[in-house]
Amino acid sequence: MAVGTHVDRVCTETRGWVSEAVRKVNADANRSADTHLLVYPLPPEWGIDLYLKDESTHPTGSLKHRLARSLFLYGLCNGWIREGTTVIEASSGSTAVSEAYFARMLGLPFIAVMSKRTSPDKIKLIEFYGGTCHLVDDPSTVYDVSRRLAAETGGHYMDQFTYAERATDWRGNNNIAESVFEQMAMERHPVPTWIVVGAGTGGTSATIGRYVHYQCHDTLLAVVDPENSAFFEGWTRDDPGFTVSAASRVEGIGRPRVEPSFVPEVVERMFKVPDAASIAAMRYLHRLTGNKAGGSTGTNLWGALQLVAEMRATGRTGSVVTLLCDGGERYAHSYYSDEWLADQGLDIAPFTATLEHLHATGEWRDS
């Protein structure tokens, strides 16, 4: 190449489009007030307070709105997403809903690769935001199918399960952990004894665990995992390659493999939660508070209430925080349907009895 010759890889028009796209995505966060921290009713004399951070109030109705925003910014700033790029994601539903929202905002085609068992209400939401749903029989194939579609379209596979833990700034910058601690500042136990989250991508637990260490808080992190999900066994066996073949019935957090974004070292405790317990807790929350949430919230709540019972049994006071991940309206035909429960062979009555016994006596009774 002759002296003085140069090649511009990115034209001015492309750079301008990316800058405008970043502005639009950031503006979405600026328009949205922070999500609420709801008080779960426990007897005040217990000296233990339980809170649910209500992520259903995001514009796309779930915790995954934060992740989708971070993933789009990460892709844009890395030069992976440009004008006209087809965006592809492997998802169990809620992340795809949120990514479809941001793709439409930027005028980009979006394809969600999901299991055929995904809630039909979530599929309708993805299509409402202009996305296309590519449904597969085997949930374990969503990764390879997403890579193939990205290659065929010349698009970008977002790969939330790899990039969730690095797309969010865990040191702060309005992440969910920073928000929780700011909102807890005026409570009687401002530094939570426990924070309880589902595994899912692994991004939320990684963000919260890292933030707690960075801020030198004494808070402990518990992760809950439903049936037919790989995280619990992978964590207890110290086996990041652990997989399961059956599909999870709890959308959003149950995964067939230990996802690359999961950081086991920041987790102090894990619970394996039966699916019937998740649904019992989800429905009990609605009965007690009027808040209608999804199955992953039930999984969170079951683990959180076990910790409350342990604290009470040992005479400890303090606070526990968990997440209300998304609204229950997405699950009218599944978790809130008695017919669906019967078809799945799920009996929630013994688990509901455990929750009722806890609230009546302060003691945990195994179902």
Rank of each mutant, 00 (worst) to 15 (best):
A206N: 13
A309M: 07
S229F: 08
D218T: 12
A246V: 06
P256I: 07
R210A: 11
R257D: 10
G295I: 04
R210L: 12
A276T: 01
A206P: 10
A293T: 11
A313G: 11
H213K: 13
T299K: 00
N228Y: 15
L288Q: 13
G295L: 02
M282E: 14
Y214H: 15
F262G: 00
T207D: 13
G254I: 07
P192N: 12
P264Q: 09
L305D: 07
G198D: 14
T299W: 03
W235E: 00
L301M: 11
A246F: 09
L307V: 02
G290Y: 01
T299D: 01
P190D: 10
E259A: 08
R269F: 13
P190S: 03
T219K: 01
R237S: 04
I195Y: 02
V244G: 02
I253P: 13
A276S: 05
D218A: 09
H217C: 12
P192L: 05
R255P: 00
N228M: 10
S205D: 08
V212C: 10
A280H: 06
E265H: 10
S205L: 14
T314R: 09
M311K: 00
P240N: 08
A280N: 06
S245W: 08
A281K: 02
V196S: 01
P264E: 10
K292R: 14
H189Q: 07
M282N: 02
T299G: 01
Y284F: 14
Q215S: 07
A199D: 09
E227L: 08
A246L: 14
S229M: 09
H286G: 09
V266E: 06
Q215Y: 04
R287L: 10
H217G: 02
F271K: 01
V224L: 10
G202R: 05
K272T: 05
N291H: 15
R312T: 00
P192G: 04
L220Q: 13
V263E: 14
G295T: 06
Q215D: 03
A277T: 04
L288R: 15
R312H: 15
P264D: 13
A246P: 06
L285G: 10
G294Q: 02
W302S: 11
F242W: 15
A222D: 12
N291T: 13
P192E: 05
Y284T: 02
T204E: 11
T243F: 01
L301A: 06
G290W: 02
